[in-house]
Write a protein that binds this DNA or RNA. Sequence first.
DNA 1: TAAACGTGGCA
DNA 2: TTGCCAAGTTT
Length: 301
Amino acid sequence: MTAMPETPAAVPSLLHAPVIDWFDEHARDLPWRRPEAGAWGVMVSEFMLQQTPVNRVLPVYEEWLARWPRPAALAAEPPGEAVRAWGRLGYPRRALRLHAAASAIAEQHGGEVPSDHAQLLALPGVGEYTAAAVASFAYGQRHAVLDTNVRRVFARAVSGAQYPPNATTAAERRLARALLPDEEPVAARWAAATMELGALVCTARTPACGRCPIADRCVWRAAGSPAHDGPPRRGQTYAGTDRQVRGKLLAVLREAVAPVPQQALDAVWDEPVQRARALDGLVSDGLVEPLPDGTYRLPLT
DNA sequence: TAAACGTGGCA
DNA sequence: TTGCCAAGTTT
């Protein structure tokens, strides 16, 4: 047994009401939160929102749901169409995985997004967070939903740290479970509310503590809002990386209506070794399909 | 466990 | 201007 900070039994009841009441008043009217979105709408939004801001997701989400209102509709199209419709959301493998998830749902779940957490987790592109989010937001179940927002809220309000650890820890999962309201619908509301609080008030850089419903119970604030001490948070480099080259290559293919000759791809990056490596990577990832005549296109299968 | 994986807005 | 950050997952 590792000595872990205990969560006093009184803590949850002191946090639930103010956070949920705040959510009742300040929740954004996002399309995937409306009843008509359904579980499929929730799932599409969760894929798109992985590492991507809400404002950038909104227009693409609307296009997707209008074009593919059900999983089977998406599954009936080539995966390349999903990649094309993904636009510039970034991390296009998510489009491929969402297409694969839709196929699995169509073939193995009767076309309905499963409500079972384990079945959700087994879908391509669905990890710990997304499985809990879909089960909670779409089906009202009681799960610890630990995304970057919730982790930050708990780190500050309960653990007294400015930022959570780089990777989700067992202690964080334990804490999230301990804080979960007992009643299923309340727990689902709590999950959405804590996430929204992190997104709108308890933000990473400049938290708006003046608008926080639990500022007077925040351990981090009570400690004087000390700066993050631990190891530096892992930054992402981008310029000059294979990722940037992959992005440029795929952008050409997204815009093309016909297979693209090698020459058109060569034009996006002048360093041939890195360019070839990036293209190979896209092909092995299934994002690009090489044709026998030496041209390339988004995958038909 | 750490690194790979896009893109763009904001302080 | 540049680095940080955004509803993570996979290998």
